[in-house]
Every structure is written in structure tokens, then in C-alpha cells.
Design a protein around this nucleic acid. Sequence first.
RNA 1: GCCCGGAUGGCGGAACUGGUAGACGCACAGGACUUAAAAUCCUGCGGUAGUAAUACCGUGCGGGUUCGAUUCCCGCUCUGGGCACCA
Length: 1169
Amino acid sequence: MKKYDPKLIESKWQKYWEKNKTFEVTEDESKKKFYGLVEFPYPSGAGLHVGHPRPFTAMDVITRKKRMEGYNVLYPMGFDAFGLPTENFAIKTGRQPAEVTAENIANFTRQLKMLGYGFDWSRVVDTTNPKYYKWTQWIFLQLFKHGLAYKKAMPINWCPSCKTGLANEEVVDGKCERCGTVVEKRNKEQWMLAITKYADKLLAGLKTVDYISQARIQQENWIGRSDGALIKFPISNLQFPINYQNSNDKNYIEVFTTRPDTLFGATYIVVAPEHPLVASLLTISNSQFPISNKKEIEEYIERTKKKTDQERADATKQKTGVELKGLKAINPANNEEIPIFVADYVLASYGTGAIMAVPAHDERDFEFAKKYNLPIKKVVAPLFTIDVGPDRVRNDKKTVYRRTAYMLIKHWSEDKYLCLNWPKFNWNSGVIGGAEGNEDIVEAGKREILEETGYKNTRLLKNYGEIHNYFFAGHKDENRYAYGYQLIFQLENDEQLSTKEADTKNHNIVWVEGKEMEKFLNMPNFLYTWKIFQGKESECFSGEGVAVNSGMLNDLQTKEAKEKMISWLEEKNIGKRKVQYKLRDWVFSRQRYWGEPIPLVYCEKCKNKKYNYIFIHAFSNNSQHAFMPWLKNKLEAQGHEVFSPDLPNTDHPKAMEQAEYILDNVKLDENTVIVTHSHGGVVALRLLEKSGQKIKKLLLVDSFIRPEFVDKKRPDVEASDNYKFDFKKIKKNCQEFIILADKNFAVIPKLQSEEMAKLFVGKLIITEPVETHFRAKEEQEVLKQLENDGWIPLPESALPLELPKVKNYEPTDTGESPLASISKWVKTKCPVCGGPARRETDTMPNWAGSSWYFLRYCDPKNDKEFASADKLKYWTPVDWYNGGMEHTVLHLLYSRFWNEFLYDIGVVPTSEPYQKRTSHGMILAPDGEKMSKSRGNVINPDEMVEKFGTDAFRTYIMFMGPFDQAVVWDTNGLVGVRRFLEKVWLLQDKVVSGKSPNFQFPISNFQSNSNDKISKSKIDTLLHQTIKKVSEDIEAMRFNTAISQLMILVNEMSKEENISLISYLLLLQLLSPFAPHLSEELWHELGNKESISKSVWPKYDPKLIIEDTITIAVQINGKLRDTFDVPTEMTEEEVKKLALSSEKVQKWLEGKEPKKVIYVKGKLVSIVI
RNA sequence: GCCCGGAUGGCGGAACUGGUAGACGCACAGGACUUAAAAUCCUGCGGUAGUAAUACCGUGCGGGUUCGAUUCCCGCUCUGGGCACCA
């Protein structure tokens, strides 16, 4: 027998697989597909470290097994190569990033091939290859054309010393990583992607996929849906008249709150330092608006600029803020005037950037209010409803409502408290007293103390406000709903009535030491009050309860109170229901060189171009309320022509008649833009069909193509047309279609809008209008869709827009992208008008290329599309995606967003890209730290493979520890795995039938019932148990226990004289996903001609895995006292009898009868004495 | 600070759904083989007491539920990941 020489056999089989294209796949409809995906690596200069192979090996094991199970397996690999580290390295060494990247990819490829993975190398992708990023840019253009990309001023990190923008990573403790200067925020116009428009879809989609719960929960939290309300707080002392009905944005502050039920408790307003109100107040002259502390505010804002969002949200730090002195708001619930603060604990990026502060019921507001001495008004009382035990509320008893004082009474000098013990009801409480009629609750309390305990002189220490209690009062045989008040008293002295005079028939008076109180009190409300008094529970109550001191909301529980408040706000038009997401739009610009150029140009001429607008209004409109007069005014002010006719017969319209009316009165040309509303859409379609003249744009505002409405009540509209259109002709006559739909689909059904978008290949915008069905009010979205900001997308034929090769690509000192200084590249022609234009100089973030790479793998060489529909249909969705914990939020969410969008525009077949998601834990360096070049603790796999061989390395990586947890690298551990493989190698000597040329391959039907009947020996049982365990463990990613089971099997086999060929071949198959080279070698050595990867994965025989005897444990009072073996089929009675008769058990029983004997089948007998 | 995980011998870890804690591997100790070493094989290996049988303690800490808790509940400590321009 040869010696086990990994180097020799590993390179031999790697060449064999490559030559035979063992792992290359094509679409094969006859087979079930399996798409296994791992996150493609960032090819850094340091090369692969031992952390990389963990997920790659795991998925290699899974896909090798799937392949043997008959699946058509796609397991691809690629490189995510744009990014900061390469760029910085290239700058430092004066080289080209492209050059460095190519080298790194070559090195990574060599290392990956060395590790023997079953990748389909013919499909490799590289995000920096123009043939790849052509499609990244193409997808961006689709996003842009569908209104999901927009420019917005966003703060960037700015180092005033280096004069460059910095990535968050380059900012350490608020200072520049390079020079240590304090980093500032600077505003810069950036491209944003409107991922927030997909918030609800991304949230809903999570319910349809199989993600590890951590990933799902993290994503849900990141999207962060909260249900609440927007509420307008009028500013009381500006000159504008306050009128809710016509309020405009100058005289109110709008807040978002999740607790509209606490509006009566809002005692001040806080706006974020970046809130537009603050800036506008500061620019307005002092004489007009008396802000007396303008300077203080300016200084405060200056200070917050230097903080990160994280520092600002840090609840441990003291909250700071400044009042806008001279300005007041009005709480619309009670018309009280309240102050307004600027404070940085409110973030501009969430909600409206302003909050109503309810210090009694929000911890942050509470802390702030304490610090600045602001009023705290309690409007929610905790509610304790007893629903278990003897005091539970009884449905068959009447409920009596009472005002009640719940009192804790401190001794006059010592730390002890006057308490009551109620023997009949098993209550331990403070003193309880009911109030009579309108009696003051504190007076009532004092009176009751006197009556019940006899103490005369009491002084109120604290009043913690209301607490409600709902329970069954046994002594009165009725349910009690107590409007409780939490009062803390102190006795002034020991002056007391004689006990006879006091009423003590139901309770005993007890003095309880302070430190015993928590144990003593057994009524939940008293315990709660005690904890507040001790400072163990916050006085601020942020939970749900019952509304109090809240006018019409009083007595309602939080849920109902919220609803009622929202209805009231909507009715009065001072607020409305609002779903708010924590998710923010995606900052898509980078001021860097090494990224995909954004394929847009800016054209001043196109921006200023004037258009001829035609407005086509709806059914039953007339000149009294003509179509969108506000829009006409705005567009005319910008210099456009607007034709907004009163159409004939609007009450009984005929679409064709109206279309002809327009054609008679206005001329269409290439600069014509038509805006329609509702029925106007039908008219516009007839117009386009008839005219034959090509126009610029058609904006369909909540329009339709069939007379089907949500309320189904418009006979005149149904009769207005036959609704048969020549869509081809219509499409040809208009360059651009925009469909604007009402999110609530209250008039026009959703399906119609979606259908139109598809028919016209148009941009579908779904938005929530100010007024349902976009009736008469000013709508920002309508204007936005008409305005031209001068950004022109490159035509598809101009893609890829390649990165220019330049010497100097360092960050500039203006904060602009390095590309901005290359004037040859920046200056270009407008693809629309041919005039001079300038290119966008920002590049895309690294996330872009990785947001869709899994789609490209399906069809990596296609130069007509990003991937063909057929191939996508066959391979997607990814069946199993494994990646790092560190990617469970951003990368996963971004790529889900892109895929969801591509699905919406009809170019990918599934809305969710990944069917299943798992995560691996990190491999830490031997020092327990993250491996990184800068720490100098990187372990290189080259070295390990050299020393131990690829198979040992792979097997060890899988054996190290639980796959989803972090593990520390330990090279010593490799020794054991190498020994294990040696053992497997040596076993070939024990194979009995030797090489058997007559053997039938494949060996899929090697079951106990085959001709080669395996007698049920100990080894066979173990072998089949191993088949079961390894199969199940691989599926559940419990690789470590799969391998330990193989070790157990091999150890047992080594003890045998002989082993059968069948057993050995089965062992090799089970081992092959982990150690493919060794298995392949031995497999062929024993006479097989085909690769082991083409053999059929073994199945276990259920009859063979059952053991003949089982061990039963005997516990006495939970402690193990004996064990014995019994035949598997023994009955419960027999086992119990056997257990009781055991000598050891008899000894522990000492002749006593056991109280209880519990039998757990096949496991143990538990005896209770 | 907020969100999501983790903690078991000298070390990596195992333990199905609440049922014999420490499988498997490393390290270590003793022995066999060998002139010797390496390799290999055998034995032992949580702690304390005891020659032993055995007993008690033991899964980060403090409580609780249970016949029985590494596993469930409450309250902490330490630690890993993420926090929107690292990938």
C-alpha cells in the first residue's frame, strides 16, 4: 500500500475535475436544480485568510451532497472587487487600482482552486469588469427612470485638515483616522435610492422566506415599522392666524408619535437641530420674531454638528438642549401653550424631525424634563388586572368602581412601614382606603389611616399618581375596579387611638422593615409603588395602561385611546394616522474613484427647456373647479405654456369628442406634455391614437384604461367609450409615460395602474396623496414628476460608461469625487439635445455590484441582457445563501431591494432572491481578535495546506466548532483531523473482498435487502446510524458532529479484523464532501471509473439503526443512582419493576414506599421519595 | 446607548422537544513496540475526600418553576457581531 500523500493526490484530482468539467453545469429541465450561493469575497492584497474558507467549504459540502442526491447544482464564485482598501493601497503605492485588483483576483483564484471547491469556474464574475458593471449601471438607470434615484443634500464626514471626505470607517472616535483632527459634517448633494418606498414589501417578503431567525429579526428591526400619528402643533405667537383647516407649513410644527394617546401629557415640543424651522427662524430678522437667545441656539447647533448619530442617541449621556425662547406651540388637545426646544436627542432623519415630549411616559423626555425643570403630566395609569388566583375578576359578579388610596406609611423615625395582613384573603399590603364621593384623595387617605390603624398624625411624602386595579374583592363578593392613587405617607409621631376604636376586623397591623418590604408585599400594585419609591422602577411609566387626565380619552385602554385620538385628530384635520419606518433611504454616492461611474449627465439646456402642457380633467369637472389650477400657476410661473380647457359635456362625457375638441384647439408637438386626471386618461389615449404626432410625456394621475372603479358607480363613464385601444400606436406616439397612483387605491384599482405601467413600459409611482384620488389640493408628487432637474440618463447604447484611466485619482480637497478634476471626462454632450453637458462624477458604493451578482451567475457571458429570462427562470431563486453575520442587515437588505425592484419591472421571475439564508460565525485569530493585516495576526491557508493537505484543512475547518458561532483558530487541532484521514487511508488494507471487478456500480442500492445482505453486526448498525447522522447533520450545518460521527465509525472499523468493501465504499461517500480528494483516490483505487461526485448518496436502512438493547438510567429525587441495560422492546411496567428492585435503589429507598415513579421511554426511571 | 448572538474540563467543543453533563478531537500523564527517537497502539484524564467501593460539589453570577434545568422564567456580569460612506 502507498503512503497517504495529500500533495500528490490533491493536485491529481484537481486537474481531473478541471479537465472533465466535473462541476460545470447547464440548464437541464429534466433535473431538479439547486442553486447554492456563498458571499463572494473582496479580493484584498493579503490574500485569502483562514476565515474565508469556512462558508465556502460549508456550501461545498452541501452542494457535493446535493449533487450526489441527483440535483443539477449551480455553485458559482466571483469577486466583489471595487472598494476603499484597494484604492487606498493603490494610492499609497502609486499604482492603478485595476492593476492591483487583477493581481489580487489571480492570487485568490489560485488559493480557491487549491482548496478543491466544486465551483463552476466558467461562470466567475468580477464586479470591476466593464462587461459586468455595464449591467450594474443599467439597473441604476432603471431605478432612476422609475423615480427611485434622486439627489439630496446629505451630511458627509469632512476632515478640515486633510480637506477630504471620509468614510465612516475612517472616522475613529469622531476624529480623522489619518491625522487625528476632529471630523465635521458637511452637506453635499448625493444620489439617494428610495429604498423606503419598498419598506413594506421588504418587511412582508420576510414572511415568505426561510432565514435564520436572527437575520429575519435584524431585518425587521432595521426596517423598524411603527404605527402612530402625525400631529400638528400650531405655533401660537407668529402673526399668522391659526386655522387648522388651512394651515400651511409656516405656522405649525408637525410631530410623529407612536403614542397619540398621550397627547394630553405633551408639555413641550422638541425639534432636531437640523429641523428646517430652526434654520428659518435664525435667518428671519430679530425684530419680526422675538427669539431672545439666537446666539445660544446657533452655538448649540454648531456643537451638534460634531457629533455622530450614535453619540446623539446614546442614552447614557446627559441630554442637552436649548429652548427657542420667544416661540411657543399649542397643544391641540387642551389648547395649552407649551415651550419649544432644540435638542439633539431628536434625530432629523426619523419621523418629522420633531417630537411632542410626554415626560411622564417616555424615558428620554422624562430625563430631559427633569434636567430643565419642565412640567410632567401623567396621562396614563398602569393597570393591574388580576386574572389568575382567588382574586381573579369574575364574569358573573358585578363590578363596583371606587376611588382608592393605596398607601405606604413610613415610621416616624425608623426604616419600617405600617402594613396590613389580611388572613382571609392572603393579602399583604400597605394601607388601603376608599374615598367618599368627591373627597380629596389625600384627605381620604389620612382619614382611612386613622380609621384602620389609629395613627393620628400623618404627612404626605409623595404622590405618584394614579394606578388602576381590577380584581375580585372577596370580602365584598364583587369585582372592584379601583381608581387607585399611589401615596407615600410618613407618621409624625406615635400618637394613636386605642386599638378598640380602630377597625381591624379583617386585617392585622404589621410593621415591616424596609429591606423586607419586597418579600412581604404580595399585591402587584403595592409592589410596583414600592419599587418606584425605592428608585428600582422609574417614575416614568412608558408601558400601556389606562388613559387619565385626558378628556375624552379617560378610562380607555392604550389601544383604544390611540384609535380614538387618531380619529379625533383626523376629524379636526390636525393630524392623521401614519406608519413610520426607521429605514432611511440609501446614500448611493461616493466621492471616490474605484467604483462604478454613475451613468448620468447634467444638461442646463434641457433643464431650462420650455414645454407645452395640456391638462385633461376628469368626468364631471367644469370651470368652477378646473383641473389643478395650482399646477397651472406654478408651471406658467416657470415660463411654460399651459392649455387647460374646459372640456365639453363633462357630465355625460364622450372620450372621442373631448379628444377631438383638444385637437381642434391646440397643436401637439415634441415638446408637448399631457397631464391627465382620472377619466382624462382615457381621453389622452384617444388623443395619442388619433393625432399621429409624437409628444414628449404623458403623466396619468390616478387614471384608468377600463371603466372599473373600486365603488363601481359611474354609468356615464362606462358609456363614455368602448375602451378598446391600439396600445402599440399610443406607445409609439409618446416618449415617456408616468403613471401616478393613489397608494390607498380608493378609486382606481391597483391592478389597472400596474397594467398601464407594463403596457407602456412606464414609470409607476405609487404615493399617498394629500387628498384621496388627487382631487383639487396641491400635490408635491405631481409637480415632481413634471419638473426637470436637468439630469439626463445615458442611453443604453452608451453603457458601460467606463472609468477613465488616470494617474491621479486621490480624494480631492473640495470634497468632490476625484473624477471631477478630469475635465476631459466631465465635459460631454447631452444625449438628448446634443448641447454641452457635464457628467456625474460620483461613483457607486461597493454595495451596488454585490446587490445583483447572484443574477449574473445564471448567465454570466450575456452581452444583450444582464441575464436571459429563461436562465433566470431555471436557476432563481437562490435555494440556499450562506453569508456572514456582519452582512445580515445591509447587504442582504440592499440586494433584496434591487431584486424586488427588478421583479416589479418584470425582468426577474421572483420577488425574493434568496429562499434560505444561513450565517456562519467568524474565525478569529489565535489571539481571539478579528484577523486583519493591520493587526498582523492573519493565518494563511497556503501554509496549512502545505503542512497538512487540503482535505485535512477542509475537514478541520468544518470540525472546529458550531458553524454559526465564532471560533478561535488553533493550528494544533489540525493534527487530530490529519490522523483521522490517515486512519481512513489505512483501512483500505482491511477491505475483505479486495478489488472486485464484478462489482456492480453505482452502489446506490446497497441496502440490507440487496443480494449482498449485510448481516446486522455492530458495525452495520453503526454504519447506518452514521449515514443517518451525517446526512441530517450536513443539512442542518452541524458539520462538527457529522465529522465526529465519522470518527467514531472509523475508530470502530479500525478495531475490526476485516471490513466489507460495501461498508468501506459507503464510508468514502459519506466522507467525500469533506475530503473529496482522498475519497476520490480511494474510490478509483477500488475499481470505480466515474468520479465519486457522480455516485449516489447513501440511504440508511431504518431497520438497521435500531439497537438491540438500551441503557436505562434510574434517578432518585432527580439524582442519578443506577443504570442498567434492557432489551429495546421491554414494556414500561417491566422496566419500572426492574428499576425498583435494583440493589442500589433499595439501599436509597431504605424500605420506604416511593411517592411517585416516572418513566421516560427508552431513557430513564425517576423515583420520588 | 440601541438591535442580534454567545458563555460547559487545561483547550476546541457534544448533549434530540426539560431526562445518565463532558461524545469527538487537542493537550497532558503512564505503559507497549524500538538501541533510541518519531510514528503507531493500549490505559487514564472536571473538582474535593477516600486504597477502594462510594459520597458531595460542578454547565458565567444571583434567584425561581419542576420528580428532574446546560436546556424554561426573572434579575445581573462578561464577551462577539451590526448601527446606514469598511466589505
